[in-house]
Structure formats: C-alpha cells, structure tokens
C-alpha cells in the first residue's frame, strides 16, 4: 500500500466518479462501491495513487465508478494485469475487483497463481452465485440444483469453494464480507489493503434480478465468532466447516510479499553487449 498523504484529508466523495452505475436497482454492488470509497477515505490514500483493476461482468464495471486510475480489461485476466502493474509500480495501491464468473471460472487459473505469487494487492470478488450480465447462467458458486435456462434442473455440479482454494494456494489474508454491511466491509477492506501480500476478500453481493432468493442473505449472515487466525491449519478447518455466512477476517498469514527490486539503474547499455563480443 502506498504512503498516506498527510498533506490533505480525503472525503469519501473524492473517490467517487460522476459516472452513473448501470447496475440494477437493489444490486449489492452499489454497497461494495460505497465500501471501496469509504475504505480509501479511511486510509487517506490520494485517488491517483490507487489503481482499481477488473475483468468483465457486472462487478467489473466498478473501476469507472471510482475516481481512481482504473482498468476494465478482458474477461478473467484482471489478476495478471494487476500483477504486471504492481510489480513495476510498487508505489501504487492496487485493488482488483471481480465476480464469481470472472474470477472463479474463466479466471480460475490466475486466482491460484496470484495467491501463490503473493504480490501485495487486494482481490475483491463480488460473489452472487450467478452470471448477471449475461442474464442468469450458473457460475462456479451456483448451487447444483439451481434451475436456469442453460442448465435445466440445475448443473448437478459441486460448487467451487473460493476461500479454501485461496488458503491452499497461499493467499496471505482471507476474509468474507456481506455487501449489505458497507461499514463492516469497509473496515475489512482497510485491513486487507494494509496487510502485506495478496489479500482475498470475498463479498457476498446479492443479484436481486436473477437470484431474488439472495435477498434472504441479510438474515443468514453473522459475524465470525472468533478472531482471525494466523494458523493455516486452523483456518482450513474453520473455512471448510463454516456455513458460508461467517463474516469477518478469517485468516492473516505472514508470508513475505513477492516484490522484485525494480527502478531505473543507470548503466551504460553497452555493458550488456559484453555477452556477445568476439
């Protein structure tokens, strides 16, 4: 994370752009946007020092709704793009925004390797267990019996468990949030951004259009009963066995972030030719 600008106090509004979101009324992602801007203001980060990187899907529209630098790239590749940015610009605060289709399906391989690589960035996945932008197809987190036009009678396929995968792959910070609790979510995002290395924050963010049943999530979520563990073994048991609505920071690792030394070194480039001279 970049250094705090002490010269200036930032307000939440400083991080919000004048572009009107195209999300459906009632979409959980509105609250995620609110949590983003609240967290950035709490951290006091200059907006130009933050980069919000995304792929494709409803959630991935979020960069343009912030007043930060943004990249709305191709489907599923946001983590790779963000790694290239952060490794060469370690001074920036890099936040990656994704959804359950973008992040866990088409981008699944990059998720594994981003956790492994442990570059200092925060990965936020707005999980609504459905493809919203393409109008209601099953995602990797959709329940096996959930009926859709593309999967009549349900997929019959076991859902993906992103938190377990993140832990096994080496993520250094793991949390689960609920979009309907923007203050709590902002507080977790502040901790995620401050934590060194790759921080993974799964936000349950209901799709009221294609999953109206998810309106019930607000009654199902509950704060995690115990504080975050630093023990991956304990974290694994906890994440494997909870009800999926356990909200809060679940794991804080202590791996050293991946950051090679970069920055201009002024050597005469003819030095490099010596490899070839006869």
């Amino acid at each position: 994370m970049s250094t705090v600008d002490t010269q200036r106090a930032y307000k939440q509004a400083d991080y919000k752009s004048d572009i009107k979101p195209i999300w459906c009324p009632g979409c959980g992602d509105y609250h995620v946007l609110m949590s983003f801007t609240r967290a950035f203001a709490q951290l006091g980060l200059p907006p130009e020092q933050i980069a919000v990187i995304s792929g494709i899907g409803c959630s991935s529209r979020i960069p343009a709704y912030t007043n930060c630098y943004g990249f709305h790239g191709v489907h599923g590749r946001s983590l790779a793009l963000a790694a290239g940015l952060k490794v060469t610009r370690p001074d920036l605060t890099v936040v990656v925004a994704s959804g359950d289709g973008d992040g866990y399906s088409i981008g699944g391989n990059h998720f594994l390797h981003a956790c492994r690589r442990n570059v200092d960035m925060t990965y936020v996945v707005m999980d609504n267990h459905i493809y919203g932008m393409t109008k209601g197809q099953p995602s990797p987190t959709t329940e096996p019996e959930f009926d859709t036009a593309l999967s009549p009678g349900g997929t019959k396929v076991r859902p993906f468990h992103p938190l377990v995968v993140a832990l096994a792959s080496g993520a250094n910070f793991i949390a689960r949030c609920f979009s309907g609790e923007p203050n709590e979510t902002a507080a977790v995002l502040v901790e995620a951004i401050k934590h060194p290395g790759f921080s993974f924050v799964e936000i349950l963010s209901p799709c009221v259009t294609f999953r109206p049943d998810e309106k019930a999530w607000k009654d199902l979520v509950h704060p995690a009963p115990v504080a975050a563990t630093t023990d991956p073994g304990k974290a694994a048991r906890r994440i494997m066995t909870d009800d999926g609505f356990n909200i809060g920071i679940l794991y804080r690792g202590n791996r050293t972030p991946f950051q090679p030394a970069v920055g201009a070194i002024n050597i005469d480039l003819s030095e490099l030719e010596k490899d070839f001279e006869l």
């Binding site: 980069a51 990187i53 990249f71 790239g73 191709v74 599923g76 590749r77 946001s78 790779a80 793009l81 963000a82 790694a83 290239g84 940015l85 952060k86 490794v87 060469t88 610009r89 920036l92 391989n109 990059h110 594994l112 390797h113 090679p260 030394a261 970069v262 920055g263 201009a264 070194i265 050597i267 480039l269 030095e271 490099l272």
Partner: peptide, 30 residues
C-alpha cells in the same frame, strides 16, 4: 535485472500478455 527491470514467468500466455499490459499501463515499457 541489471537495468532495474524484471521478468515474470507467467502461469500461461493469457497471463503473460495481460501482465505486460498492466506494466505498460503503469508507464513501464513491456
């Protein structure tokens, strides 16, 4: 590394091309 740059081994070519786009977006030719 001798000139202050870096090479990353990507998990696949999809990642490689997106990594260099990210680097270049940040101002580092890639």
């Amino acid at each position: 590394a001798k000139v202050g740059g870096v090479l990353l081994q990507a998990e696949d070519e999809l990642a490689a091309i997106n990594m260099i786009i990210g680097s270049s977006f940040g101002g580092t030719p890639a």
